[in-house]
Simulated scan of single mutants.
Amino acid sequence: TLTLSPDSARGFSGEGGVLEALATEDAAADAELVSVLLAWEPRIEPASLAEQSGLSVERVRAALTRLGTAGRVGYDLADAAYFHRELPYDADRAERHNPRLVAARRLAGEGAVTLDGSRATVASGDRRYQVRESGSAFSCTCQWWADYRGRRGPCKHALAVRMVRRGATVAGGVR
């Protein structure tokens, strides 16, 4: 197996694109349900899995993303389709080792997020960052946002706000 990343300093988080799916409260349980329905098909159809599982297509896609980071599902760019596979990955490694996701869970778990309508304030260290939500898009006053403007996924502050808005807290912090 050969796995490549666009830069040696970057990981395999889809440039941050998978963080939203990993940060949802339902993704872990949904991934377990969806994984039971996988049957080594050469092409996985999210709509079919949604019908079989009783989940929305959006939740199935989030579950497939989670299964993908665990090495249990692949995505073929040429076919624009998911496929079933089993790689020897630690299923929770992507979550444990993603610094933005880990930091976002810490911020949300520590109560650093204050919601105010479509805006939120996130206390991080000795600074306060303003996060705005417009539809499904976020913006933030942090340096990460200034540098990447969402091209590499959300910053830790926006992720923490999304977690708090979803109420994704569990015992011991935020999931």
Rank of each mutant, 00 (worst) to 15 (best):
L2W: 10
T3Q: 09
L4Q: 05
P6D: 10
D7I: 01
S8Y: 07
G11H: 02
G11S: 05
F12G: 05
S13F: 05
G16Y: 04
V18Y: 11
V18C: 09
V18H: 08
E20T: 14
E20C: 06
L22A: 01
L22W: 03
A23R: 01
A23H: 00
A23W: 00
D26S: 10
A27W: 01
A29D: 13
A29G: 08
D30A: 15
E32I: 06
L33Y: 01
L33V: 15
V36T: 13
L37S: 00
P46F: 03
A47I: 12
S53I: 03
S53W: 01
G54N: 04
E58T: 14
R59Q: 10
R61Q: 14
A62L: 08
A63F: 06
T65H: 09
T65I: 14
L67P: 03
L67V: 07
T69S: 11
T69Q: 14
A70H: 05
V73H: 00
G74C: 05
G74S: 08
A78F: 07
A81T: 09
Y82V: 11
E86P: 03
D90C: 07
A91K: 06
A91D: 12
R93D: 13
A94K: 05
N98T: 04
P99L: 12
P99E: 15
P99I: 08
P99K: 10
L101C: 03
A103S: 09
A103F: 00
R105I: 11
E110C: 06
E110F: 02
A112L: 01
D116Q: 11
D116L: 08
G117E: 08
A120Y: 12
A120D: 12
A120Q: 10
V122Q: 00
S124W: 13
D126Q: 11
R127C: 05
R127N: 07
Y129R: 02
Y129L: 11
Y129K: 04
Q130E: 15
V131M: 05
R132M: 07
S136Q: 15
S136E: 15
A137W: 10
A137E: 15
T141P: 00
C142Q: 04
Q143H: 13
A146G: 12
D147F: 04
Y148M: 05
Y148H: 14
R149S: 15
R149I: 09
P154H: 11
P154K: 07
C155V: 00
C155N: 00
K156E: 09
V161L: 07
M163H: 05
M163I: 15
R165S: 08
R165K: 08
R166D: 14
R166Y: 06
G167C: 09
V170S: 08
